[in-house]
Design a protein around this nucleic acid. Structure first.
Lengths: 229, 229, 229, 229
DNA sequence: AATGAATGAGAATTCATTCAT
DNA sequence: GATGAATGAATTCTCATTCAT
């Protein structure tokens, strides 16, 4: 998987004037986006408000509308931004993996690391389902497409069970990773009630065994469906 | 996995009067809950409104507060209700499975069947994350607990890789099933743009192979981690 | 001209619920309409605000939306109400006029009397041109239709120049009356800067002579159009 | 009626600097005024915005405040400009009229012609009543003063009923012309839904008869006012 | 047990105007 | 002269909840 950075907008333009952004404008836009990440993550979409975002960004309320059309539009921009960043983190992590399966594992490790550092990812992305279903699909699809390409390559290399359907498997892995991350990173609290800095290695290893089992080519075809006969 | 039906409320009482519900009262409560299922599923939590629910239930607005404390409280009641029903559907499906692994498969089949028939499940349950995180945890946990118990039993019976951690694996399966359901049931549309009545068997089989691989005891320990050596 | 009261709405319904109004509801609606008349007249459409209207009506802000869809919709209702009332005032005034021309004069007198008592008429109705052009047309048309019918009858009775086109003449009369009312009633101020209680009789007489000239059948056809020949 | 052009501003100065305008400055100011005419006419005062005006004028937003104090001030400047132009059009039209009454007719013709060519006149001028009542009075008064002077001259020449009060009559004529113009020019649409290029001659003739009747000296005093005795 | 009129806190959004460049 | 980013007061409208009937 290449580590290309997919840029979602060619050139940023002001929704108010339709003109491309100046240097100053781009900086303001970024501050708004950063503020939005915090506010949406802490309060959720509906509790969040434009004033809260602009206050946190340190700009006037009206300024918001110079850069975004609406609350929903900054939310979407944020999801796309997070998606780009998480995929970037995953690619980086996979960059120097030895084998295909190692790469897969490294990708998950990168994903969990990013999640631990940016809990906003879950909170924001999962809420997108109810705010902007299309961007949510985009988000999942972009990640899953990466998995799928990786799986196909691994199958060609003989590292992955050739009988597995890459698409279904990719979605399975995505769902697995997402829920494991939710359960063992976001829900987890240490003795002091604070979130863990990273995924518990024991859990990661357990998950790895699950994945390895699932993906590895069968050494001998079991007679599974008739196993009781 | 036992097919116990967890009843979440001992005796229903009116939040307004604190008195137990009459027959007529119980019927009204149920109508409200049914209306809520439709309205929440169609419009989402925030778009939904009490008036829409009472109108659909065919009762006066004020009546609502005879049975529920608030919008959030009927939502939570609905999530718990759906959880009870989906677990029931899964238990039923697993009831006459041959082997442990068959039961696992049957459980997923039951889950998908329920999902196809009650799309509200996803829409409502997943939104619970942002409305009532505690009930969402309850929902996931209750289902996962079932998986976990099943896995332990299967491990004891030698049907499942004894090296797998049951808890992690259960969450992995839950996430996998959830995302496969979302992608291949809820997002899927046929030529006429209508949702499929059931999960595509090919996808189900592909997923089954993935699960079988993951869970089956290894016939011989692969040297995977050292495969480059 | 008959003195029928044109009722513009069969049965009043709540825009929020679509249900017919109760006694209490109708009273509240009326209070809002009365408040709106004062507020729109004093401040104009754009300076007026829903809060100002509800405060003056002594009801909560939200109550407004039980009876009207929007600021524009109460404005339209008010124009229609004023139209009904001014036409009623005119009909009453014309009721016991001796001749056709007397009736015409009496109609204007009634119009000016209503205007003096309800300056809101002008302020609100004329502003309708920029808020709701359709209701403005309705307003003018309804009054002009009355004039026109009166003129036709008078022509048949031989009281009005048969060569005059009733439609054009009716609009001419409407415009005349409107501007005379504006100039000599609404703009007029006495020594203390207060608006006059009624139209100056001298002006009314001057206007009457103008109308009498315009409408009366010519005793002999002047050679006016050919006067240069 | 003389054809003097009343110039409302001696020398144009920048409201920002207080300095007289350069050639280039005057051109920019004029472009803004022309843009304002279109924008105010199309959208009305409140829908119009400074940005829309500057965009149409092709200048930067800030430039606006080099030439006008405020939205209201450019609006007022526009009304005064339109008033000057419509009076000019009327004077031109009356220039070579034969008789006094012909001149009166010609004046109306000129007014209607200008209206047909510049629908902005009505839209802008009539809205002035709610934006800047003083300029509206100025507008009406300046036109009416012209009528009144014409009427007095015509009375001295024996062309107009000496019993008519010139002031009242002038306002009556103004109102009449205004409403006829509104009804038969601005509201009128042909089969294709497009506004007519000019006033329907039949309507104009009908109106002329009305005016002729109203103004012409009575050949014999009718017994109208005593008709009931 | 049922009803629905009344409420008001709260949120999104617009735009005339300023001012540093 | 010209520009356009920044501002925030002000407005409309929604809806969960209360309570008198």
């Amino acid at each position: 998987m290449s580590s290309e950075l997919i840029d979602d907008e060619g050139e940023l333009v002001s929704p108010a004037t339709g003109r491309p952004l100046t240097k100053r404008g781009e900086a303001t836009r970024r501050r708004l986006l950063e503020a939005a990440e915090v506010v949406f993550a802490e309060q959720g979409y509906h509790e969040a408000s434009i004033v809260k975002i602009t206050e946190r960004a340190g700009v006037g309320l009206g300024t918001f509308y110079l850069y975004f059309d609406s609350k929903q539009s900054i939310f979407e921009a944020l999801v796309i931004d997070l998606n780009r960043r998480v995929r970037h983190a995953m690619s980086e992590a996979m960059a120097d993996a030895g084998s295909r399966l190692d790469a897969e594992r490294a990708g998950f490790a990168g994903f969990f690391r990013f999640t631990a550092e940016h809990p906003a990812l879950y909170r924001v992305v999962r809420e997108a389902e109810f705010v902007s279903p299309e961007v949510l699909r985009l988000h999942y699809t972009r990640i899953v497409d990466g998995y799928e390409a990786g799986l196909r390559a691994a199958q060609r290399a003989g590292d992955v069970d050739p009988e597995l359907d890459p698409a279904t498997t990719a979605w399975a892995l995505m769902g697995m990773g997402e829920l494991i991350g939710m359960r063992f990173l976001l829900w987890e609290r240490d003795a002091d009630g604070r979130p863990p800095a990273a995924m518990d290695p024991a859990v990661f290893d357990a998950m790895s065994r699950f994945i390895d089992n699932a993906l590895a080519p069968r050494t001998q075809e079991p007679t599974q469906k008739d196993e009781k006969g």
